[in-house]
Design a protein around this nucleic acid. Structure first.
Length: 645
RNA sequence: GCCACAAUAGCUCAGUCGGUAGAGCAUUUCAUUCGUAACGAAAAGGUCCGGGGUUCGAACCCCCGUUGUGGCUCCA
């Protein structure tokens, strides 16, 4: 008998050689039906693989990432099996599970695969899955593996095998298909009920553009058809919310080939929106003791040589600007930190000034690879909501707490109710990779961990994810469709204070080096507007909406009254316009509903007589008539409630 | 940057075999003056991404470039 320890700490006894699936069956038939994968003694384990010794056991279902992973990994094998049957002679690269589904890289051996083939592949996969073939794990010697895959002409697999250690090689077989694979896998392909081939793409073997190009077939599968339908509906919805589409529709921003790739042009409505976001952030930053600064868009090349950025990114960046002066070179500013360090150096600093918090909506330029540019989320010129905090190492924790306050306030105000945090620390086995003293690192890492605990934030900790110059804390939000976006970053930096020789005079009348903290709650204005657009589907909260209300006269006879209402509302700082087109009221309502204007104010004979407006809320319909002043007061209150919660 | 695909009216898109440009919406004008999600009529609107080539003739075929999309690699 062996002892199996469960995640809740309980221990049960089983016969040696019992499988995780049998254990699940002993707990409940329902669990046995739902379980997809297991972890045994910290090792990913197949459900049908026997356990021989005392150990602990995790069972994973669809809801667990590990469960989905096994499901999609087995689906990748199913795809390969289908491709092998449909197109004999194809050779296989690798076929892993990914965040949403899986892919398989194949060498089609001359056959051209197009999206017209998708339905045939899907059909074949379903047909194979219905055979409910068991997926069988086998351990194989390196020599045998090379022989088996070599005979089948699987050159890519052979290359992989030749790099593996003998004794660690396993294969998985279902039906007539055998793949080199570490696992784990489902016990059989039976649970795969719904299949969708998503797309094709070219991918180089091992990501190396000098090697063969393979065809990457992307797919996704689910245990229920309904889940696939929901997933496809979600993709449809995401397409509708695409910020590039909404930005064009709503007149927020544009791009021009004449201006250049990745250089957004902010249209009047987009610029006003951005300005409102900046004001919002400025206001709270002021409360938290930040001081606004302004620095130029270019800087002498030597500044970036000092900061170290030139050595690291100079070649892959916008190239230096030359002046009539021989040998004089300037760079477009790729980040604001060096400029802010010079502001720190502009005066002798005392410990009494710390923490010194310098904020700037600083526009920076980075030469991103052309293939990486994407709408507003990846551009070559963008404005960071940047700030640098210069403080002592004892102040790090308190500063983190304050920045987290700002970030959480933003999330709350903009209704990003679902967020995660990640703490990135150094790799404890590789300490020499990092700059700064061991003591400082420990202090900073401890400060971040404590700050998260104090805020009640359940942050994931990743070792080895820190930058070479300091640990950091990142926030990820989930938008209305459940997609994750990285938003706020707080980053400790020991490098730049060193490079710029920053100093302050301490209470002991000695010179000390400050610590620097980089932070950007939005990341960049561009990226944040993009995320906000996709999160809200363009229906901005009232306080941000480009137009808060639009007045719809029933007919042209009431245009004068409409403009009088507009004048009165504008006096209360309400953003309002008049739809004075010669159209029927139904038409005006429809158009402005589609334009996402939060309030429509319908005015005709009745309203004019009583000094009223008939209020209609976007998406909700008729709300009845109120006095103009009442509407203005209600709207102002609604806005205030949104930003002062 | 690499690979694949794409670019036609302000927007979304059609355009067959290479024979000289089309729809819906938006716009303008006319008509209408209307009560909570599309009234009607007409007009105007084109460097078919740019350049070169093949051809009697190119939106369409070929080459080069630009920009975009998806993926790969990258991300201070």
């Amino acid at each position: 008998m062996i002892n199996i320890t469960f995640p809740d700490g309980s221990v049960k006894q089983f016969e040696a050689g019992v499988t995780p699936l049998q254990i699940a069956e002993s707990i409940s038939p329902r669990l046995a039906q739902d379980v997809l994968a297991a972890k045994v003694g910290g090792v990913e384990w197949d459900l049908s693989r026997p356990i021989d010794a005392d150990t602990d056991l995790h069972l994973y279902k669809w809801e667990d990432p590990e469960g989905k992973h096994a499901f999609w990994h087995s689906s990748a094998h199913l795809l390969a099996e289908a491709l092998q049957e449909l197109y004999p002679g194809v050779k296989f690269g690798i076929g892993p599970a990914i965040e949403n589904g899986f892919y398989y890289d194949i060498d089609t051996n001359g056959h051209t695969l197009t999206s017209a083939d998708f339905s045939a592949i899907e059909k074949k996969m379903i047909e194979l899955a219905r055979r409910k073939e068991p997926i069988v794990r086998a351990e194989i010697s390196k020599a045998d593996a090379l022989k088996v895959f070599g005979e089948r002409g699987e050159e890519y697999k052979c290359e992989l095998i030749s790099e593996l250690e003998d004794g660690s090689i396993t294969t998985y077989t279902q039906g007539a298909f055998t793949d080199l694979c570490r696992g784990p896998h489902l016990p059989s392909t039976a649970p795969i009920k719904a299949v969708k081939i998503m797309s094709l793409a070219g991918a180089y073997w091992r990501g190396d553009e000098k090697r063969n190009q393979l065809v990457r077939v992307y797919g996704i599968t689910f245990p229920k058809q309904k889940m696939l339908d929901e997933y496809l509906a979600l993709l449809e919805e995401a397409k509708k919310r695409d910020h590039r589409k909404l930005g064009k529709e709503m007149g927020l921003f544009a791009f021009s080939a004449n201006v250049g790739q990745g250089l957004p042009l902010w249209l009047p409505k987009g610029a006003a929106l951005r300005d409102r976001l900046e004001q919002f952030l400025r206001k709270i930053q002021k409360q938290y003791g930040y001081q606004q600064v302004i620095t130029p868009h270019i800087g002498n090349k030597n500044l970036y040589v000092t900061s170290g950025h030139y050595a690291k990114y100079g070649k892959d960046s916008f190239q230096p600007i030359h002046t009539p002066e021989e040998g004089e070179e300037y760079l477009l500013k790729p980040m604001n930190c060096p400029h802010h360090c010079e502001i720190f150096r502009a005066a002798p600093r005392s410990y009494r000034e710390l923490p010194l918090r310098l904020a700037e909506f600083g526009t920076v330029y980075r030469y991103e690879q052309s293939g990486e540019l994407h709408g507003l989320t990846r551009v070559r010129g963008f404005t960071q909501d940047d700030a640098h905090i210069y403080c002592t190492s004892d102040q790090i924790k308190d500063e983190f707490l304050k920045v987290m306050d700002i970030i959480l306030y933003i999330f709350k105000t903009l209704k990003f109710d679902n967020y995660e945090a990640q703490i990135s620390l150094r790799d404890p086995n590789n300490k020499e990779k990092y700059i700064g003293s061991d003591e400082n690192w420990q202090k900073a890492e401890q400060a971040i961990i404590e700050a998260c605990a104090e805020k009640g934030i359940n942050a994931r900790t990743e070792l080895g994810e820190a930058a070479f110059y300091g640990p950091k804390l990142d926030f990820m939000v989930k938008d209305a469709l459940g997609r994750r976006w990285q938003l706020g970053t707080i980053q400790v930096d020991y490098n730049l204070p060193e490079r710029f020789q920053l100093e302050y005079t301490g209470a002991d009348n000695q010179k000390h080096r400050p610590v620097m903290i980089h932070r950007a709650p939005f990341g960049s204005m561009e990226r944040f507007v993009a995320v906000l657009l996709e999160h809200t589907a363009g229906k901005f909260p009232l306080w941000l909406a480009p137009e808060q209300a639009i007045i719809l006269p029933i007919s042209e006879k009431f245009n004068d009254y409409a403009y009088e209402v507009k004048r009165q509302l504008e006096q209360q700082d309400i953003r309002v316009s008049v739809d004075d087109r010669n159209e029927k009221i139904g038409r005006k309502i429809r158009d402005n509903e589609l334009n996402r204007v939060p309030y429509m104010l319908i005015v005709g004979e009745k309203e004019m007589e009583n000094g009223e407006v008939s209020v209609r809320k976007q998406g909700e319909g008729d709300k009845g008539s109120v006095k103009i002043t009442t509407f203005a007061a209600n709207l102002t209150e609604e806005v205030n409630n949104m930003i002062n919660q």
